[in-house]
Computed example of a mutant assay.
Amino acid sequence: MKATSIVEFVRDTYKTDEFIPLHAPTFNGNEKAYVMETIESTFVSSVGKFVDDFERRVEAYTGAPKAVATVNGTAALHAALYMADVQRGDLVITQALTFVATCNALYHMGAEPIFVDASPVSLGLCPKAVDTFLSEYAEVTETGCVHKQTGRRIKAVVPMHTFGHPVELDELVAVCLKWNITLVEDAAESLGSFYKGKHTGTFGEFGAVSFNGNKIITTGGGGMVLCKTQELGLRTKYVTTTAKVPHIYEFFHDEPGFNYRMPNLNAALGCAQMEVIERYLQQKRQIATGYSDLFSGSDFKFVTEPAYAKSNYWLNAVVCPDKESRDEVLAETNGLGVMTRPVWQLMHRLPMFEHSICGDLSYSEFLEAHLINLPSTPTEI
């Protein structure tokens, strides 16, 4: 497979000779009308009808009993972990193959990650690797799951649905129940992805979604906490809106809270984007089918959705036969104005996480050296 063949396919897909980014926002609906309505109302900050409307739309789409809008995806994950009772000094199992925001949320809580390998099935957190690690290094006590060597509590498991492909959720739920650990889903990349017909982010106690400018729909900056129950959702909403006790004019806050409220201006954009999400998903699936056909019969392996899932194909990916071919494709495609990128450097290689506890990471290391992301913007641009 030559890089020029990839460039030719991408340019033919997007019908342009200009620079082609990895994933750009798409605005072809009511975005301008809703944002202008917000501006004219003067309710551009955290009070306004679009915030509530956006939360209801996401609840209806995902099936979450309660969704709570936040200022970005990292804030959503931070709030989710806080609500899951992750505390300073706790350990949290997650994958080394993830975007740094997953681990930043842990860092700022005073918790630390344990890095476990990715699954060849999903590219996300491997349930077998989690269970193997816990069987060797952990035990269940009266206070919960404990890391035997350090005596620290292992409070949560945080899988990330890599590039929008759902992890093996039934197996992860079973592992968490076995070891008395809370499941919190990093669903930042997986709005529009379903596991056996149920939306990602709704299997754990909490899920965190991102609406960054490069996601399948965007609010500019924004996130959402998907909550397992109405009660948890109301509590999350309270905590993320500065824990202010309702009163017609008095300001009284009865506990420390977060100012993580999504502005009405951003939510207006999100409401318009939710109206066209199905169209975007269809277009992205068509692009993925084209990539699959392009790489068919070559020694490059296109990443397809797991058999149990319907993925949003947020970022398309291909596994190259070796690092040399990976580097060659990266250099040539970017040199020709078509953006491709390697997968993130593994988290345990970053200076702030290099002393973290790790399991075997052999498949994560393989993907780090072989995987490339490809342009994935919906074609309606």
Rank of each mutant, 00 (worst) to 15 (best):
D322Y: 07
V10I: 15
L232N: 13
Y249L: 09
D85Q: 13
T74K: 15
R235G: 01
D327H: 10
A105S: 15
H23D: 10
E231D: 09
E368W: 08
M83C: 13
L177R: 13
G73Q: 04
T218R: 06
E365F: 04
Q283D: 07
T74N: 12
E55W: 01
S41F: 03
S292D: 08
F9T: 00
T13F: 06
E205Q: 15
A267G: 00
T26Y: 02
A118L: 08
L177C: 11
G335Y: 13
A24C: 04
T26V: 15
Y260E: 00
P321H: 06
E365D: 00
N334R: 14
L234N: 10
E142S: 13
V92Q: 02
E185A: 09
S210M: 08
T42R: 12
E168T: 11
G192A: 06
H199L: 02
Y249K: 10
K228S: 12
G204I: 10
E275S: 01
V47L: 02
Y291T: 06
I216K: 05
A307I: 06
F252W: 03
K196A: 03
V146R: 04
V35R: 10
T162S: 10
F203Q: 11
A272M: 04
T304L: 06
N259W: 00
G204V: 09
L265C: 02
H348A: 02
S41N: 02
A24T: 09
Q273T: 04
R56E: 11
S364L: 07
G197A: 06
G197M: 05
S362T: 13
G201C: 09
L177A: 14
T132C: 10
V58A: 04
G220C: 07
A79L: 15
D117M: 00
Y313V: 04
T200K: 06
E139P: 01
E8F: 00
V239S: 02
G270T: 01
Y280R: 15
V121P: 02
E189H: 13
G359H: 01
C103M: 12
Y308A: 04
Q95N: 12
M352W: 11
Y34W: 11
I39G: 07
V71D: 07
M262H: 07
H355V: 08
R153T: 14
T162Q: 13
Y14H: 02
L77D: 11
V303I: 13
G201K: 09
G207L: 07
V7Y: 07
S193W: 01
P256L: 10
A309P: 05
A3M: 08
H147S: 00
L336W: 09
A105W: 08
P120Q: 02
T379L: 10
D90H: 15
G204C: 10
L269D: 00
S41P: 03
P351M: 10
H161C: 05
G290S: 00
G204D: 09
L330Q: 12
E328Q: 14
D322H: 01
